[in-house]
Design a protein around this nucleic acid. Structure first.
Length: 174
DNA sequence: GTAACGATCCTC
DNA sequence: AGGATCGTTACA
């Protein structure tokens, strides 16, 4: 299984909570001018659509957030605090605005530091993981052991959504 | 126009 | 605890 590119669109069509867990232990692959580097995904968060007050889709479709309604496997890259890019993978079928934030990989903690290290900017917005030549996901066969916690940095969400255990942190792999 | 606000990170 | 830094959004 090592190194197999996940090409099935069905993988990315699962709901964002299941996708966030399924991405733990998978490999994020980045191709920079032929230099291919692989990163083991270690930390994710899910954003569950219009009913999730922590999800940008909750405030309605805008030019910026319309990409959330794209099909699973599409990338959503957005700038936060004018400084850092957040890397998200859209989950579910077209029209279902759920996403998974990649918060960290092995050796790189923090979503802002991750995109900076992998040279992922706004030009990756709307990229399709199933078609891209510069970024994709590979299977590993690894089974992650992980803990669940509330999501980070969403104080604006209501109590219920702020306390949902929608952040997933891998601490080992079998 | 204008102002407020971030799915962060680093330094003090 | 506070500052950096800027695109998006809502509202006048």
């Amino acid at each position: 299984m090592q190194g197999n590119r996940i090409l099935s669109k069905e993988f990315f069509e699962m709901s964002a909570d299941n996708l966030a867990i399924s991405l733990l232990g998978k490999t994020l692959v980045r191709n920079i001018d032929g230099q291919i580097t692989r990163y083991l995904i270690a930390e994710t968060e899910c954003y569950m659509g219009v009913l999730d007050t922590g999800c940008q889709a909750h405030r309605g479709k805008t030019p910026k957030t319309s990409v959330l309604w794209e099909r699973g496997g599409t990338l959503y890259v957005h700038l936060i605090y004018g400084l850092y890019y957040m890397l998200n993978i859209i989950a579910g079928k077209e029209g279902d605005p759920m996403g998974v934030l990649i918060r960290g990989v092995k050796g790189i903690k923090g979503p802002g530091r991750l995109t900076r290290a992998l040279e992922i900017g706004k030009d990756f917005n709307r990229e399709n993981l199933l078609l891209s030549e510069r970024i994709w996901i590979e299977d590993t066969g690894l089974i992650p052991l992980y803990k669940k916690t509330p999501r980070i940095g969403i104080d604006y969400a209501d109590d219920i959504d702020r306390n949902q255990l929608w952040r997933f942190v891998a601490y080992d792999y079998l």
